[in-house]
Design a binder for these strands. Sequence first.
DNA 1: AGAGGTTACGGGCAGCGTAAGGATC
DNA 2: GATCCTTACGCTGCCCGTAACCTCT
Lengths: 301, 301
Amino acid sequence: MNLKSLEVFYWVVKLGSFNKAAAKQNTTQPAVSQRISALETELGIKALHRSTRAIALTAKGRALFDYAERLVTLKSEILMNVADKSALSGTIRLGVAETIVHTWLVDFLEEAQRNYPDITIDVVVDITPSLRPALASGELDIAFLLGPNTNSELVEEKLCSYELNFIASPALKLPARPLSNSELTAHPLIMLPKLTYPYTYLRKALTTIERGPPRILTHWSLSTIVRMTEDGFGIGVLPKLAIAKELKQKRLRIQKTNLHLQNLTFAVAYARESDEVTKLALADLARSVAKNFVAGARNID
Amino acid sequence: MNLKSLEVFYWVVKLGSFNKAAAKQNTTQPAVSQRISALETELGIKALHRSTRAIALTAKGRALFDYAERLVTLKSEILMNVADKSALSGTIRLGVAETIVHTWLVDFLEEAQRNYPDITIDVVVDITPSLRPALASGELDIAFLLGPNTNSELVEEKLCSYELNFIASPALKLPARPLSNSELTAHPLIMLPKLTYPYTYLRKALTTIERGPPRILTHWSLSTIVRMTEDGFGIGVLPKLAIAKELKQKRLRIQKTNLHLQNLTFAVAYARESDEVTKLALADLARSVAKNFVAGARNID
DNA sequence: AGAGGTTACGGGCAGCGTAAGGATC
DNA sequence: GATCCTTACGCTGCCCGTAACCTCT
């Protein structure tokens, strides 16, 4: 009897699908199929009804699942309490919101490589609303995303908080003094789309009876927002820390206004599961890297 | 991380030796060595001090051992509670006292084959005093031997009880009536050696002041005792059930005496361990086979 | 037709046993 | 030198991934 087979079985039941279990375990669906059959043959039982679309546990299957859960838990306890953390290994699929890519992701990956040389990290850059379901379904193991969202079924913990700024191209020749709201809305605002804090807040704050809502240009790609802002399409709404280079090179500047924007906060998120020390280790590392990054970048303007 | 490796580690610690663990797990000593190294490498720890002769656990090793024990227990619980018993598989080393060979061992092996086709049973015939330490050290998994010995560190449960008889060759021309003690001691008694019930009892019961102790010929092999008795060397002290064939063929007969011998009882014994459903299953089977044998052989005389 | 599980098959590698090599008493 | 663990090495067989197939909606 094999620990891996029981782990696969556990995930098949937990996720309700051979495919999802395969994704979770970084393997293929046929491999999962094989393992389950082998397990059933070895124990001489049928564990799963899988005639129809949804899989259902047999009585023995339910019993087996309970044991499998305990085994999986024990395994992760061993990794947690006995194993040298630097010997952690395996592949972790990391989802990242783009802002993080532009700030400390590289630092993080380097640190991870240094501390956990045997862990392979597959990075997927995507928008926060796509990252959460991917975590929940097991397609991703861990993510750095906009949050923490307290309603989430995921574990989410604050990582860092970025001051949100109005950014303009010097070519716009805006005054250094704080802009009034009407001066601000003379230009389109370029920002992240609906469902994010800047959009909902600014749309409400800048809507006036006479002129209606401000012109807003949204895009999920931070790079695109930066590029459009540089090209003078409008005023970007971005954390200054994400555009340190552009600011330094004077290709962009911070535009003062009368509005106070709340910080954009990011969180590390992962599914609430009985396993995976690796995730915890990486989450800790992310916290430390993010903290250092914010501390080291305090003097940017 | 591998269930088998942790199991091997468990047995190495439990038995205090790579060699014994290898024997226990039906593998070779280098294989054990490899597994332990692999485990230590994977977890990035040293689990065992093995510079000197005796094996000692490190702190991490002790922690790992606790987890390993729980895993081994869980595994056997799965086998016990979830697995179809008829799907049990593996190799079991069975030690057998010779009397059992001459009574129901073949029945047992056939039944085992029928009920558990995937279990391989290696049979070792030996004397009871050798079987117990072999069980304790893990060289054997289970044994049918003289017992139960209540002082044993082993689990021992009564299997069957054989009436012990005085057996003689017809060639001795002894009378059919009960022999007196002095008539009995006119011939050497052929029986199992010291440390067994018949020897100690009869030596004491038949020793008289004038003639001293009776002449006793002992041998650990039942076959030899039977053969010697057949050849008229003396009067055998044997369970009649072990010589059914010889009695039927009138090559031997039961000799009545004035002495009452207690029954010779046999037990199934195995080490008190956290694992091994297989042993329990086979012990159950042995109980049933032994019971049937005794019931079916009631009319022998 | 598409989603999801099974079967078939070739290839890679983990892990085994044999055998030789230390180390310690 | 005996005992016990480690290292070396060739080989077997398990298990994986690819791909084709089946089945149900």
